[in-house]
Design a binder for these strands. Structure first.
Lengths: 243, 243
DNA sequence: ATATGTCAAATGTATAACATTTAAAAAAGG
DNA sequence: CCTTTTTTAAATGTTATACATTTGACATAT
């Protein structure tokens, strides 16, 4: 009996999407470039406007392009970043498929080793930056969200210093997730209670010494303490604002 | 002077998307449920079919629903998985924003510690499963892709045994990425050369001993060796099939 | 010069018609 | 009665057209 392969009727909009995505990935359209207008794409693909629009809409959903309206508008190719990955993490968390303790544990597992990598790569200029960031944590005070953002700067920088873009993406996604959740928890806990100034001091010392084992331990201890505070804050939030 | 806030004209399709997404995340629509048909959604949101379709299309792009055609068709809510995260990783790799060495390094950093977690959680039944998987790696032989899939089973199981769904998602995404790339590299390298049978034997012994430090080391050594083989295969691929 | 108005090009929305897919129901045949 | 075939209905997929809205560039008036 001859062997046949099943027919897969791909939808037109998916086909358009795939071709455009391929063109972007192979940099036939580079970041900043404008994709052809809907009208032109209709001509090129010989399909209806609906099909073209749905394809572009999915490109936008997947962070490949940004759609702008107006006379100079169109679908502009974006720099591919970890944003999509971060959004996926966020929705997984929001759907209850990941808990805060799990996120915190993952950080404990990943970031100390990452920081160890970072301290090996960092230049004197990088050390200066780290120092500035930690110092700014002490001077900055206020009720607003600025503090919450401020507290994640150091983790961002360390993520970049690993020189590993995958680790960078993961660590930043985790930091963003924790940051957003912390903002939600604010009503019951001032951010300073979850992450008081000075929590990074030991880490800074270890970096300035360029002592990778000490950096590992400092990050480990920091994240352990932070996890406990975060879980306590969440507990407090649940009891006060039960829904 | 009074303070005004800028007006953000949200597009109708985005608004529909957000409301539907929210309903899915809060489990007003559970996995397996069918969203209202396009016609009903038009009534409910009082918008055109175009708007409804674009919203649903984006839901599908983000893995929230699966669209089926036909008389019993519609948009069916999916179980939220790490698939979106995995796809994001894949595209980042495809766009050159992550290299194979970086992926391999990330695995070296993450999986040994994860395996250490796993060995603490695993039951006798789990140990049996691990044993079976490793043994099947020796018996299975063939040119096809089955072997490539077979080689990642163990990493999958260990990911699940961590009991941490974030780590599980990350580790599986990495495994998938490496697996797909390995398949591409096949023309030049038989999969058995990249990941020969027996590479997991030491890891199995450590698990059977329930020796977490040994597990850590075995995973570490395994991934180091695998990384070197993978990089060599990629090198070979580039020189033979330069494009 | 500066503000204002006009215009054109692009995306956003609405509507209607038809095509295709799919499973279930009805009909036909043995 | 069971099996096969045909019909049907309900859903999504596609096309086409018209109009609305947004936005920057250009022209114009003051």
């Amino acid at each position: 009996m001859p062997t046949f392969t099943p027919i897969k009727q791909v939808k037109a909009s998916d086909e358009v999407y795939n071709q455009l995505k391929e063109a972007i990935l192979t940099e036939q359209y580079k970041a900043g470039d404008k994709l052809p207008s809907e009208r032109e794409l209709i001509e090129m693909f010989q399909v209806s406007r609906t099909v073209v629009r749905e394809a572009i809409k999915v490109l936008e959903a997947n962070s490949f392009v940004e759609i702008k309206q107006g006379s100079t508008g169109g679908a502009f190719v974006r720099h591919i970043t970890f944003e999509r990955l971060s959004n996926a993490c966020f929705d997984l968390f929001m759907s209850g498929k990941m808990s805060l303790p799990e996120i915190a544990q993952a950080r404990i597992l990943i970031e100390p080793a990452a920081a160890k990598l970072a301290v090996r790569n960092c230049t004197d200029a990088d050390l200066d930056k780290i120092k500035q960031i930690v110092e700014s944590e002490h001077t900055l005070s206020g009720e607003n969200d600025d503090m919450v953002y401020n507290r994640s700067h150091l983790h961002y920088l360390i993520a970049e210093l690993t020189g590993n873009r995958f680790l960078e993406a993961i660590i930043k996604s985790l930091a963003i997730l924790v940051r957003e959740v912390t903002k939600d928890l604010q009503p019951s806990f001032h951010p300073d209670k979850v992450h008081p100034a000075g929590m990074h001091d030991e880490l800074l010392r270890a970096f300035l010494d360029r002592n990778d084992e000490a950096v590992f331990k400092a990050m480990h201890d920091h994240l352990h303490e932070f996890r406990d505070r975060l879980i306590a804050a969440e507990e407090n939030f649940r009891t006060h604002y039960s829904k």
